[in-house]
Simulated assay, not measured.
Amino acid sequence: MRVTPQPVRRQVEERLREAIITSRFMPGEHLSDRMLGDVFGVSRGVIREAVRLLEAEGLIKVVPNRGPFVAFLSAAEATQVYEVRAVLEALAGQGFAERASTEEIAELREVFEELAATRPGTDRMVLLNLKRRFYGVMLRGCRNAYVARMLDQLLNRNSQLRATTLSDPKRLPQTIAEIRRIVEAIERRDPGAAWAACREHVHQAAQVALRILNQQARDEAAQGLEVALD
């Protein structure tokens, strides 16, 4: 079977998205055409097209006369993202409980057991990759292409917050317990319980993420005051 190579622009788009999601490029970092061209080894035209597409996803913000930057997620924006994510994730869990194959349910359990075996202090990218695998199985098995597409984009949008909350030693055991309830509801083929467990998981994640964002805002405000008083 012949494998058709992806267009260069698509490859750059995916690699740039991955670099932002995994915090290789941090919020607020300037993504100049020259720097990205050197990193990915492509022309500025290809870079600009990839940037335009990721701007539409909310991962990049283009500032007039300054260029593209990795987008920040404010507390207000995060609140909206988590509200929508809660509904989409609940739909995915419900659909998975109703329509996933026995093999897919076993695969979901296998990924969960890998996550459950981790301990506080585990590298946050390891944790994030496990969560991405978990959602990959769920989105495939829920058999709803619209939910899968929209939820995947939202998870990309707040991936850096997810990595931060997952690496919190106090949050990790809670995350594992919440996901265990999701998996057990799915294994019982209980769509209502899967819906409720998914919504509760997102609700708890939102509380942690918003606490982090609000603390960051307070710290930045305090630093600004210190500079003003110097």
Results as ranks from 00 to 15, higher is better:
22 T>A: 11
23 S>Y: 05
25 F>S: 08
25 F>T: 13
26 M>C: 07
27 P>W: 07
31 L>D: 05
31 L>V: 01
31 L>E: 05
32 S>M: 09
34 R>V: 11
35 M>W: 08
37 G>L: 08
37 G>F: 00
38 D>W: 11
39 V>D: 06
39 V>I: 12
39 V>A: 08
40 F>T: 12
41 G>Y: 12
43 S>Y: 13
43 S>L: 03
44 R>V: 12
45 G>E: 08
45 G>W: 09
46 V>G: 00
47 I>T: 04
50 A>N: 12
54 L>I: 04
54 L>E: 06
54 L>S: 03
55 E>G: 03
55 E>V: 11
56 A>D: 14
57 E>R: 06
57 E>W: 03
58 G>D: 01
58 G>N: 02
59 L>D: 07
59 L>V: 01
59 L>G: 06
61 K>W: 10
62 V>F: 02
62 V>T: 14
62 V>E: 05
63 V>S: 00
63 V>G: 00
64 P>Q: 06
65 N>V: 06
67 G>E: 05
67 G>M: 10
68 P>H: 07
70 V>R: 11
70 V>Y: 00
71 A>Q: 11
71 A>S: 14
72 F>E: 15
73 L>P: 05
74 S>C: 07
74 S>V: 00
74 S>L: 10
75 A>P: 14
75 A>R: 13
75 A>W: 06
75 A>I: 08
76 A>K: 10
76 A>P: 01
77 E>I: 08
79 T>W: 00
80 Q>W: 05
81 V>Q: 07
82 Y>M: 09
83 E>Q: 08
83 E>L: 13
84 V>S: 04
84 V>Y: 05
87 V>L: 15
87 V>I: 10
88 L>I: 11
89 E>G: 04
89 E>F: 03
91 L>I: 02
94 Q>C: 04
95 G>L: 04
95 G>M: 05
97 A>F: 14
97 A>N: 07
97 A>G: 14
97 A>C: 15
98 E>A: 13
99 R>M: 02
100 A>G: 11
100 A>W: 12
101 S>G: 15
101 S>Q: 12
102 T>I: 11
103 E>M: 01
103 E>T: 06
104 E>V: 08
104 E>Q: 14
104 E>I: 04
106 A>E: 15
107 E>Q: 09
107 E>V: 03
108 L>D: 02
108 L>P: 01
110 E>N: 00
112 F>D: 10
112 F>I: 00
113 E>A: 11
114 E>G: 05
114 E>F: 02
115 L>K: 06
115 L>F: 09
116 A>R: 14
117 A>N: 14
117 A>R: 07
118 T>E: 10
118 T>K: 11
119 R>W: 03
119 R>M: 05
119 R>S: 14
120 P>M: 12
120 P>F: 05
121 G>M: 07
121 G>N: 08
122 T>M: 09
122 T>Q: 01
122 T>R: 03
122 T>V: 01
123 D>T: 04
123 D>L: 05
124 R>D: 09
124 R>S: 14
124 R>M: 13
125 M>E: 15
126 V>S: 02
126 V>E: 15
127 L>I: 07
127 L>M: 01
127 L>G: 07
128 L>N: 07
130 L>Q: 12
130 L>Y: 13
131 K>P: 01
131 K>H: 05
132 R>F: 01
132 R>D: 13
133 R>H: 09
136 G>D: 09
137 V>W: 08
139 L>W: 13
139 L>N: 09
